[in-house]
């Protein structure tokens, strides 16, 4: 027999010589029978108890059509209906910082001489002839040409935002009308829908002169149907 057996050859009667790593090996492993620590048993029981309670409280009674466990009691009662809609002001803040803050700034102060402010602006909270319908129309179709805001004249262009959905426009407007000390009533998605329908498919930006020709509507504080004509002006009327 040769002194060297290739290690990958199956043994045929002759066992290969043990190599150095095999020779220095210890015995095959075995186990002692030490008891499980008592505190581990207690801790395991606590964990399993917690898991059982969690399952009971959050399983929705193991019904296949319950998706939101917090709306269903442990015995399976309750509706399991849709979650509560989030506050439109919070959504409005996010949409504002995504779309509007570039020009009007996060502070709502605009940029002097370029972009008009939103804080205490008659265009936002309502003025002598400016109503809530004008504000929605500006968002839908944009605005260009000279415009007077809080006594200063701005001459710039605002792009249309008609690609936003009714509830998104409503959220943005509700946000700017209630932030930075502004305190006008919220604008609902239904109201945006009404104004959008009334505007038809107008794509051209409004001018101040065109808007002034449209009678102002104002949403009453109750949030019901808009009333015309405009309420008494909280801010100075724009000198058109």
């Amino acid at each position: 027999m040769t002194s060297h057996t290739p290690s990958n050859e199956p043994p045929n009667g002759e066992s290969p010589a043990p190599n150095a790593p095999v020779l220095r090996e210890g015995p095959e492993p075995s186990e002692k029978r030490a008891p499980v620590p008592f505190w581990l048993i207690i801790l395991s029981a606590v964990i399993i108890f917690w898991a059982g309670i969690h399952l009971a409280l959050n399983s929705g009674g193991f019904q296949a059509n319950v998706y939101n466990p917090s709306l269903v009691s442990w015995s399976g009662g309750g509706s399991g209906g849709p979650a509560v809609a989030p506050d439109p002001k919070v959504i409005g803040k996010r949409l504002f910082s995504q779309n509007c803050a570039v020009c009007h700034q996060g502070s709502g102060m605009g940029v002097a001489g370029q972009f008009p402010p939103l804080v205490a602006s008659e265009w936002v909270v309502g003025g002598a002839w400016v109503g809530d319908n004008h504000l929605v129309k500006i968002l839908l179709a944009g605005m260009q040409g000279p415009v007077q805001v809080k006594g200063n004249t701005y001459n710039n262009a605002m792009p249309p935002w008609s690609q936003l959905k009714d509830d998104q426009i409503a959220a943005i407007l509700t946000y700017i009308r209630s932030e930075w000390g502004n305190a006008a009533v919220p604008i609902t998605a239904d109201y945006v829908k009404t104004v959008r329908a009334a505007s038809g498919d107008r794509k051209d930006p409004w001018t101040q002169k065109e808007l002034k020709a449209i009678p102002a509507e104002t949403i009453p504080a109750g949030g019901a149907a808009p009333a015309a004509p405009a309420a008494p002006a909280p801010a100075a009327p724009p000198a058109a």
Binding site: I47, A51, N58
Partner: peptide, 19 residues
């Protein structure tokens, strides 16, 4: 979009993996 119990079973089992 799954029945609530599926997720809750997963949570209970994941916590018990501490054992």
């Amino acid at each position: 979009p799954l029945p609530a119990w599926m997720v809750s079973v997963g949570v209970a089992a994941s916590v018990m993996m501490i054992i």
